[in-house]
Nucleic acid binder design. Structure first.
Lengths: 248, 248
DNA sequence: CGGGGAATTGAGAGGGATCAAAAAGGGTGG
DNA sequence: CCACCCTTTTTGATCCCTCTCAATTCCCCG
C-alpha cells in the first residue's frame, strides 16, 4: 500500500523544509502511487516526449543523454527528494533519459500535476521552480567541470559535491550507526560519463588522489579522509551544507 | 519612459505565446523599469547572492562561472525574451554571473516578483517553471557537447543551435529586409569559453568548417551555407524550430 | 598614423583517449 | 565449497587531439 505523504520518512530529515497541511494534502491528492525499480532500470527513456512526473523516494538515479554512436554524458545524479520529469515536455531538443543506479522507489504523479500544483497551491508551484532552478545550478557546476577543470579537479569536485549531497540525507542517528563514509553506489564508468573522461583515465585519476590519502572508496562507500585537501584541489568554497529545500 | 508591456515588440513575434490581460497586467504591475546596458556590462556579478530579476528585451548576454585562476566557462547564451535571475537565490553553490555581449535593454523586476508572479497568477508561475526547465535543457546540451563531442562537433552544434534561436526571433519581414544570415555578436573567445576549447583551437576548427563551405561568419553575422551538413556533423535531429514559449 | 582588440597561424608539448589485457570481485548453479 | 562467468577495476603502451606560447596579420577607431 502506498505511503501517506505525511508519513514520508524523507520529510523528517532536516534537509527538507516543512510544508503546510494544505500543501501536503494537495500532493497526496495528486499522488498516483509508487513504483519500485531495479538497479539500472530506465525510468524515462531518452527521447521520450511525454514521460511521467516523479519524486525519488529512495535510491540513486541519474539523468543522461547520448550521441548516436553511443557516447554518453551523465548530466547530473539524482538522490532521494529530487523531483523528476519537469523538463520533459518543455524543450525542443531531444529529452534526456533517467536511469536508476540502485534499487529505487519513486512516488508517481500524473503528468498534469505540474500544472495542478501551480494552480491549486502557488507555494508548491514556487517550490517546483525552486527545485528546477536548483537542479540547473548543479548542471552548471558539471558544465564548468567538463569545460574547464582538469581530470584531477573534476574528480575531486565530483566526489566532494556528491559526498555532501549524500551526507545531507542522513540524520545524526544514521551517522552514528552506519559504517564510516556515505553509501556511494556508482561505478567508475558512471563517474567517467559524468565527468566527460574516459574510464581508464578516471581510474588513474581516482587512484592518484586515493593514494595521496584524500579519500577511500570501497565496497560501495565513500569516505573523505582529507576533505580540506579535496576542496583545495577542486577549488571549492563554501561550507558545503546543501540548502534546506522543498520536497514535492 | 519605460515600455508598456502590452506594446512590447517581443510579444508580437510568433515565438512567444499570447498571455491573458490579467497576466499582462500583473507583469506590468511588477515591472520596476528598464535598464540600458553597454556591451560587456555585468548585469549580475559572479557570486552575487541577491541579484535582481530581469527579462532581456533586446541584445545578447551570457551566463558564466569561472575558477579562481581565471578559467571561464560560459554556461549558455541569453537572447531577447530570456528571463534572468531565477537561480540566483536557490543554490548553495556560488552563483553565476551574467554579462552582456552587445548593448542590451532589460526589463527590471523586484526580487520578490518571483513569488508574486506565482501567487497572483499561477499560470505565470507555471511559465517561470517552463522557462527555467527550458534553460536547463540548453545547459544539458552544452554539457553533452563539452563532455562528449569533439571540437568540430561542438562548433557545428553551437553554430546550428544559436542560429536557430536567433532566427526564431525574427519576423518574415525582418528576414526579407536584413542582409543574409542572422546577427551573431560573439567573439571567438566567447565561443571558445562556451565550448570548453582554447581560443586557438576554436579558431582553427571554425576555419576548417568554413573552408568546407558550411557557413560564413563575418561582420558580426552568421550565415549557414550548408545547414544539413552542419546538422550532420553535430549529430542533431529535429526540425530546429524552437518551441513557442512564454514571455514574462 | 598609432594603438588595441580580434583573428590567424606556427611549432612543440602534453593531458587524456584508445586499445589491450590482466587482475579482482561477486554471484550462481552444481 | 568450488568452478565458472560476467562485471568492474587496474595497469601498460601508444597515439593524437587540443592546449600553450608566440608571432603575425587584420581591422576598426580615434
Amino acid at each position: 500500500m502506498p505511503l501517506v505523504c505525511d508519513h514520508c520518512p524523507l520529510r523528517r530529515l532536516p534537509l527538507f523544509m516543512p510544508h503546510s497541511a494544505d500543501e501536503l494534502a494537495l500532493v497526496q491528492k495528486l499522488k498516483r502511487g509508487e513504483r519500485e525499480l531495479a538497479p539500472g532500470a530506465e525510468l524515462i527513456a531518452e527521447g521520450a516526449t511525454n514521460a511521467g512526473l516523479f519524486t525519488l523516494l529512495s535510491g540513486w538515479a541519474f539523468r543522461h543523454k547520448s550521441l548516436a554512436d553511443g557516447r554518453r554524458q551523465i548530466l547530473n545524479f539524482l538522490l532521494p527528494g529530487d523531483f523528476i520529469g519537469v523538463q520533459q515536455r518543455m524543450g525542443d531538443g531531444a529529452a534526456h533519459g533517467v536511469t536508476t543506479l540502485t534499487e529505487a522507489t519513486v512516488c508517481v504523479f500524473e503528468r498534469n500535476s505540474l500544472w495542478e500544483l501551480h494552480r491549486q497551491q502557488p507555494s508548491m508551484g514556487f517550490n517546483i521552480t525552486w527545485l528546477t532552478a536548483h537542479e540547473e545550478s548543479l548542471v552548471d557546476d558539471n558544465l564548468l567541470s567538463a569545460g574547464r577543470r582538469s581530470a584531477e579537479e573534476r574528480v575531486a569536485t565530483a566526489l566532494t559535491l556528491l559526498y555532501r549531497r549524500a551526507d545531507a540525507l542522513r540524520t545524526e542517528a544514521d551517522r552514528a550507526i552506519e559504517p564510516p563514509g556515505v553509501a556511494f553506489p556508482l561505478t567508475q564508468q558512471h563517474l567517467a560519463d559524468a565527468l566527460g573522461l574516459s574510464l581508464a583515465h578516471t581510474n588513474r585519476t581516482l587512484r592518484g588522489l586515493a593514494q595521496r590519502g584524500l579519500f577511500e572508496w570501497s565496497e560501495g562507500r565513500l569516505r573523505l579522509l582529507n576533505p580540506a585537501a579535496l576542496k583545495r584541489v577542486a577549488e571549492l568554497y563554501g561550507d558545503g551544507r546543501p540548502p534546506v529545500r522543498p520536497l514535492i
